[in-house]
Amino acid sequence: MIVLSYASMEELHTLRNKIEKRMQLAYLDENTEEPFLDDNKLLALQTLFGQTNLPDKQQTDYAVTIMLIQMALDTHDKVIRITKADETDEERKNRQLTVLAGNYYSALYYQILAGLGEIDMVALLATSIKEINEQKMSLYYDTTTAGAFFTKLGRLEGSLFRTAASRYTDTARLESLDDYFLISKLKRETKGNKQTPLSLKLAAILENQESGMTVTEAIHEEMEAAKVRLLAKLDLLPPAYALLSRKLLLQGNRQKELYLEEG
């Protein structure tokens, strides 16, 4: 059985609490959907900063900051494309607060880093946000194929991590982590029956392609393919990330094969 000794569940829980505490704003909390905090992304950041010589507090501050940016971007993704003409008062309030919640989380990122005097890090992450929005726009107008869409999505999901990692390591060795982030994202998509911006976009691409596949089928197919790709490249990843990836793969239906490989 694989044990993640370097990032215990307790440490993860503490970090989650810190992020949630930082984000609190009563009226937003009461009136908007709770932002999703991706544990897999948090674990990747914990692993990254855990391998640096940074003091513990700085590691925590960086991880909190990057997750705030991620949640700001994810929150803004929830804003619907066109405001409904017959929008109810409740729907209107939700739309308005979703915009403001994203703005608030991204303002907090700047406040934390400015408070620490970390202007270089502000710049580095701002550059990443800029690039992410370029990628999001490209994804939004993408009309090519589901495959190309998923490749872009994996790249997008790993963007913030890659930017942070570029400060400390050669990110070329971490390329295959795009699949790690893609799997994490797609896993989330398969939970619940709610239509998401991603599923709507994918539905449009599939229809355009006349693929005959449903969104759920396409997501499952891609998730399996990404797992195979990630498994094939585990040995190329630095050990800590290989371990992290194994943990993610173990959560899925390749658990059996991995146990067999582990002997």
């Binding site: 915009v99 991204s106 502000v122």
Partner: peptide, 29 residues
């Protein structure tokens, strides 16, 4: 709305990137 959200986030990021040329932590705070 989507394009407006991305454009707003993009402009905000660019402004912080641009301002980071000013090495004056107090101004940033």
């Amino acid at each position: 709305n989507k394009v407006a959200m991305y454009a707003g986030d993009y402009i905000f990021a660019r402004s912080l990137e641009y301002l980071s040329k000013l090495e004056e932590p107090r101004a940033h705070q």
